[in-house]
Design a protein around this nucleic acid. Sequence first.
DNA 1: AAAAATGTGCGGTTTTTTCCACACATAGGG
DNA 2: CCCTATGTGTGGAAAAAACCGCACATTTTT
Lengths: 124, 124
Amino acid sequence: MSKFTKSELEVMQVLWEHGSLKPAEIQEKFPRAIKNSALRSLLSVLLDKGSVTREMIGKAYYYKAKTPQQSTLKRMTKQMANIFSGGSTAALIAQLIKIEALSEEDIRELQTIAKQKIKEQEHE
Amino acid sequence: MSKFTKSELEVMQVLWEHGSLKPAEIQEKFPRAIKNSALRSLLSVLLDKGSVTREMIGKAYYYKAKTPQQSTLKRMTKQMANIFSGGSTAALIAQLIKIEALSEEDIRELQTIAKQKIKEQEHE
DNA sequence: AAAAATGTGCGGTTTTTTCCACACATAGGG
DNA sequence: CCCTATGTGTGGAAAAAACCGCACATTTTT
C-alpha cells in the first residue's frame, strides 16, 4: 500500500496542491532543482505503483495524484506514532501539543475543533 | 543536523526506549529480524553522525542515543507540516484531530492538555 | 586444553533510490 | 522547408541505504 520515498513524496505534494500537471509544470513547482528526465523517471515509478494516473492532452501527459493526501497523512502519522508514542495516535497528538510552539490563538482553535469532533461523534 | 533513514530510526527508537544496550540486545528488541552485522553497520553510521555514543563495558560496547527523541519528533513534524499543511505545525495538529479516529476520552484529554498549555504561557 | 559462545573490525556486495543523456517525434514560426 | 521548442521513451549510471560473511580475540564451559 503506497508508501513513498522522499522524492516521490515531493512529487505527490505538488500534485496534491495543483491537480493535473504535465512534467514541465511539476518541474517548475518542484521544491528544489530537478532535471526533467529525473522527474519523469520518478513519475514512471509512481505510475507503476498506481499512485498517480496520467492522461494525454494535446501532446503531453498530464499527471494527477490517485492516492489521496489524507490516507498518506494517516499512514505517516501512524508510523510516527509507532516510533514516538507506542503506536497511539492520540498520544502522539497530545505529545505534539505539549512540545510544539503554539500561539494562544492556535490552541483555542484546536479547542474549537476538538469540541466539534465530540459533537460529531454524538451524532453517531 | 541528524536526520535518519528508516533503519536508523528503528535503531534510535530502541535506544530511546531502553537506554544503554549492546548490539545483541538492540538486535533482540529490534522491530524486525536483522543480522547482527547489519545492525552493527547501522550503529557505526549513527556513531559517525554523532547520533549515538558508545562505551566499552566488559568486552562489549554499550550504545546509547545522543540525539534526543524530542528534537527528532520536532524535526519530523515540521517536515510533515511542510508536506501537508503549508509548513504550519498548528494546522497539521488541527488536521490530525479532524481526521484521526479518537475516542471521546482521547479528545477530552487533549483539551486538558491544551488548557494547561495556555496556563503555562500566561506565566511567561 | 579444546570447544563453544560472545563480540569486534573490516571489507566488501546487494538493493533501492535517484538521476541523467540521448534518440526520436511533432507542432509552430520564420 | 528548416529550425527551435516541447514532449516522450528508453536504457542505463551514480549515489545512498541496507545488508552480510569471515577472520580474529577473549571469555566460558566441558
